[in-house]
Design a protein around this nucleic acid. Structure first.
Length: 252
DNA sequence: GCGGTAC
DNA sequence: GTACCGCAACGCTAC
DNA sequence: GTAGCG
């Protein structure tokens, strides 16, 4: 089966001095990296810079990255063969205190119900923080503008139905106590934390794919720290949904 | 973490 | 030798 | 235009 990071540009955050020390993003694979790391040259838009993005992450690559003190792995929403056409439309659900994980779970279920009504498949993973990521697989025939408009439109419907619980407002101050649906993550060059990416926080929480039936506000879901416990449970279903590449209905 | 540069 | 430095960077939204 | 946001 095609892995969900195959052919995707990856971006890393590195913490050579630990999570409390200096950190930095890294996009450009260093020249001294082993030759078996898969990369692809990419000319950045506007700026006349070429970046050799790491594409895909097999076990050996992840091991090398780990030794480079990479903690977070972020990936593009499109793949190298079709960079302008994402194959994931993503809903980034970000609860603003005092809203938390339970509110994100509630919003995710509202979203799933709406997507079900539209006959669209979807899957969910924790962000590793208090939020959730909901993915709708799409055939790579839409532009980022189109998937962004789609996620925006769905977000507006939910926000209108549940104005006290959901917001699309950018300014942080206007999100207090609500779940922010960040539709703007659907854009060229934007990235999402990859499945199983750790976060640079105490106890190293991980972004974990879940089956919908596993998604409850129970403690055992929120703040997962032990990846092994979950391997072979949620991931297979998650990846099979991601690989289904269901077509979005007509976007207007 | 590590290569590149400046002293 | 050792000290310091870079390691991303842009579109979209709100004001 | 500039600042905020991710």
């Amino acid at each position: 089966m095609k892995k969900c990071l195959d052919g995707r540009y990856l971006v890393f955050t590195r913490y050579p001095d630990g999570i409390d020390g200096k950190w930095f993003y890294q996009k450009d694979c260093p020249a001294h990296a082993p030759s078996w790391i898969k990369t692809q040259a990419h000319v950045s838009q506007g700026g006349k810079r070429t970046i050799n993005y790491v594409t895909g992450a097999d076990a050996a690559t992840l091991a090398w990255l780990g030794n480079q003190a990479c903690i977070e792995v972020h990936s593009w929403l499109s793949r190298t063969r079709n960079l302008l056409h994402p194959d994931w439309a993503v809903f980034d659900l970000d609860p603003a205190p005092p809203a938390g994980f339970a509110e994100a779970v509630h919003t995710a279920w509202l979203l799933k119900d709406l997507l079900d009504d539209l006959n669209l498949s979807s899957c969910v993973k924790t962000s590793g923080g208090a939020g959730l990521h909901v993915y709708v697989p799409v055939r790579p025939i839409y532009t980022y503008q189109q998937t962004r408009d789609f996620v925006h439109a769905i977000g507006r419907i939910l926000q209108k139905r549940h104005p006290d619980h959901i917001t699309l407002q950018r300014p942080v101050a206007q999100r207090t106590g609500k779940v922010y649906i960040d539709y703007l993550q659907n854009g060229a060059g934007k990235t999402m934390a990859a499945p199983y990416s750790p976060r640079p926080l105490a106890r190293a929480p991980v972004s974990v794919p879940l089956t919908w039936s596993m998604l409850t506000s129970h403690k055992t879901v929120y703040g997962i720290t032990n990846v092994e416990e979950w391997l072979g449970r949620g991931d297979e279903a998650f990846w099979s949904v991601l690989c289904s590449r269901q077509v979005l209905p007509a976007l207007r």
